[in-house]
Nucleic acid binder design. Structure first.
Length: 677
RNA sequence: GCCCGGGUAGCUCAGUCGGUAGAGCAAUUCACUCGUAAUGAAUAGGUCAGGAGUUCGAUUCUCCUCCCGGGCUCCA
């Protein structure tokens, strides 16, 4: 007897003889929605065939994860068909759905002079036109199954498809797990002799489905976004293909909302705002991936650092300082030269060895620990440093402040006994979340990363013990987490904390890494209560991750409108006329004496223009002073994002501002952790 | 590192089918003295990213390098 899964997840049995198409229509009417997709047996799309015993039908709405997956996946096929129609001799590889859309990889024939043909922006326009024609033609998606012999004939001109047929390449389009649509994952259990096969109107693609019923249904709300190079199978030693990215949605409103979100993100870009607000810059004279901080950026950074130091001081950390360079012997002992060499700047040759800029602070902190004999009474020993490191990131990966070559980590290494490690990581999680909340973030998700397949140090037991410690701390704090197999650092597994920003993007910032390996390599010991020598466990953690990256994320999160406690200029005083300047100067010095960061813009331009400039600089408070204020000792308060208030007593304003700034420290002093769902 | 696209004044950009460049904003000066998002005028500002080649002549064409953006890959 066939069974059906409804959008609410419930299941029920069906009469034989019904078709998926009948069902979808009936269910759609019941749900009061036309946009319903039926999926038979997880792979098949044939709405007209009667259902048979054992068939499983799933019905979902077009805006569910499954529905969007189906729509994006089907649109990718339309893209492939359009490209093959328009470009003689083009061959195609894979085209899976991804977050917000889909892509498809192609290889175009070489030009007569031997140069590889590439897609241009004009090509994308042509392709989009052809795609809309195909959609208008309502071509059905028809499923067929071929033997691999026959499939090799069908795809004889498409070597990448042949690799998939021969099982030498995974086809990510076979990943049908809802909501997880990453490439190169979950290799399909393919029957060797029977290849799934979809074809329509002369265009044939290798695929497992599911698809929409025909190209006219649910498709059309898409846009081709860009073309980029991508290696076949993600391997830089394989051919570089041309990848076309598109976005696709169930409705026009969803598509428009997505495009609007992209504009919003572009307007918040930290590189753009960093320049506009005169916070940071990347002079080409400095070299790639290196930033300088201007005075206003410097104020914000100092606030961040001051706050961080204050919290760490209260949190029981000891402050250390270590140099930017070290003899290569240190990095040989730590394992960095073997495992991290590609990311390190080259050494400086000196009389007594090679000196490397440090890519991490850990070896230096280990030396602090090892500088004398340690007792269990000292543990956990928490060493903290705002440590600047240099990593030779590959040039193509650099991205403003978010991926940079010289950066400062708010880095800590905690040395503790094996008994202490779970408690310590659990309280670390609380500490980290509390500090992140103080900066206006409240939506977190954790990721646990386990041992990499290559380039790692230490025994399996140690790795397992470390991962278990991280896992139990996560569970104790009830922080939702996912597991990322093989993504750990070379010395141990790690927890990464993702935060979600004001427009819903996630950023990976904080990291906690449990390390049983480094203490062994460096022969670290402490004297236990019974007098025996024991090995401590080392916890690496960065809270902001890096000051630069955190600052970049904050800048985008607040769209440049930093909260008052962080704002480089908290208030600006504007005299209405020249003869109010003396009073304006008095207001400035009163506020400055009260610890407010304040400046003035003299009255040689119209008031309206000076207000406009202050607003563009996103200054939290604009204070306008004129005749009334001189007489009454007041100010006109024009707050960012609020209503103008005339005649506010200066003392009252100062108090209000102090209150606002203090509220931040009160709110963040609490270390209570509440889990988000 | 690889693929694609770029680099013109502090910023955003126009322009030169090869004859060494222009706007708006910003800056400076002057005038205006104005109560909540753009007052007017004048001045100054550029080895057209850097280097080499072709040419009578290169910002423009070619090549190389550097830097930036979007991806691949990687990461704090």
């Amino acid at each position: 007897m066939p069974t059906i899964t409804l959008p609410d997840g419930s299941e029920r049995a069906l009469d034989e003889g019904a078709t998926a198409g009948d069902l979808a229509a009936a269910i759609g009417r019941r749900l009061n929605k036309d946009a319903v997709i039926a999926d038979v047996n997880g792979i098949q799309r044939d709405l007209t065939a009667p259902l048979a015993d054992g068939d499983r039908v799933a019905i979902f709405t077009s805006q569910s994860d499954e529905g969007l997956f189906t729509i994006r996946h089907s649109t990718a096929h339309v893209l492939a068909q359009a490209v093959l129609d328009l470009f003689e001799g083009a061959t195609f590889a894979i085209g899976p759905p991804v977050e917000n859309g889909f892509y498809y990889d192609f290889l175009l024939p070489e030009d007569p002079d031997g140069t590889p043909r590439t897609f241009t922006p004009e090509d994308l326009d042509r392709i989009e036109v052809r795609m809309r024609e195909i959609i208008g033609e309502a071509q059905p998606f028809v499923r067929d199954e071929l033997t691999d012999t026959r499939a090799r004939e069908v795809f004889a001109d498409h070597p990448f498809k042949l690799e998939i047929i021969d099982g030498e390449a995974d086809d990510p389009t076979s990943v049908t797990e809802p909501g997880r649509v990453r490439t190169y994952e979950n290799p399909p259990a393919k029957p060797k002799e029977l290849q799934p096969f979809h074809g329509y109107d002369g265009f044939v693609d290798l695929c497992r489905g599911p698809h929409v019923p025909d190209t006219s249904r649910f498709l059309g709300h898409f846009k081709l976004m860009r073309v980029a190079g991508a290696y076949w199978r993600g391997d830089e030693h394989r051919p570089m293909l041309q990848r076309i990215y598109g976005t696709a949605w169930a409705t026009k409103a969803d598509l428009d909302a997505h495009l609007h979100q992209l504009e919003e993100a572009a307007a918040r870009d930290h590189r753009k705002l960093g320049t506009e607000l005169d916070l940071i810059s990347f002079p080409t004279e400095l070299g790639a991936g290196l930033a300088i901080w201007h005075p206003k950026g410097g104020i914000i950074r100092k606030q961040m650092e001051d706050y961080s130091r204050a919290r760490h001081e209260r949190g029981g950390y000891d402050f250390v300082y270590t140099p930017h360079l070290a003899n290569g012997r240190l990095f040989a002992e730590s394992g960095h030269l073997q495992n991290y060499h590609d990311d390190m700047y080259p050494p400086m040759e000196l009389d007594n060895g090679e000196y490397y800029p440090k890519p991490m602070n850990c070896p230096m902190h280990v030396l602090v620990y090892r500088s004398r004999q340690r007792s269990y009474r000292e543990l956990p020993l928490r060493l903290f440093e705002l440590g600047t490191v240099y990593r030779y990131e590959r040039s193509g990966t650099l991205h403003g402040l978010l991926r940079i070559r010289g950066f400062t980590q708010d880095d800590s290494h905690i040395f503790c006994t094996p008994d202490q490690v779970v408690d310590e990581i659990a309280s670390l999680l609380q500490f980290i979340l509390s500090v992140l909340r103080a900066f206006g973030f409240d939506d977190f998700e954790a990721k646990l990363s386990t041992r990499p397949e290559s380039k790692s140090l230490g025994s399996d037991e140690n790795w397992k013990a470390a991962a278990a410690a991280l896992r139990s701390a996560l569970e104790r704090e009830q922080l939702p987490y996912t597991v990322d197999e093989g993504a750990g650092a070379f010395y141990g597994p790690k927890i990464d904390i993702d935060i979600r920003d004001a427009i819903g993007r996630t950023w990976q910032l904080s990291t906690i890494q449990a390390d049983f390996t480094t203490p062994e390599r460096f022969g670290l010991e402490f004297v236990a209560a019974d007098g025996s020598r024991q090995r401590p466990i080392m916890i690496h953690r960065a809270l902001f991750g890096s000051i630069e990256r955190f600052f970049g994320v904050l800048l985008e999160h607040f769209a440049g409108a930093f909260p008052t406690w962080l704002a480089p200029i908290q208030a600006r005083v504007l005299a209405v006329r020249d003869d109010h300047e003396d009073y304006a100067a008095a207001v400035v010095s009163r506020l400055r004496a009260a610890g407010i960061r304040v400046d003035a813009d003299p009255a040689d331009e119209k008031l309206g223009n000076r207000i406009r400039k202050a607003k563009l600089e996103k200054i939290p408070y604009v204070l306008v002073v004129g005749d009334d204020d001189v007489a009454a000792g007041s100010v006109g308060v024009n707050p960012r994002g609020g209503d103008v208030e005339r005649g506010v007593a200066l003392d009252a304003f100062t108090e209000r501002l102090h209150g606002e700034i203090a509220e931040h420290s009160r709110a963040s002093a609490s270390t209570t952790v509440t889990t988000n769902s």
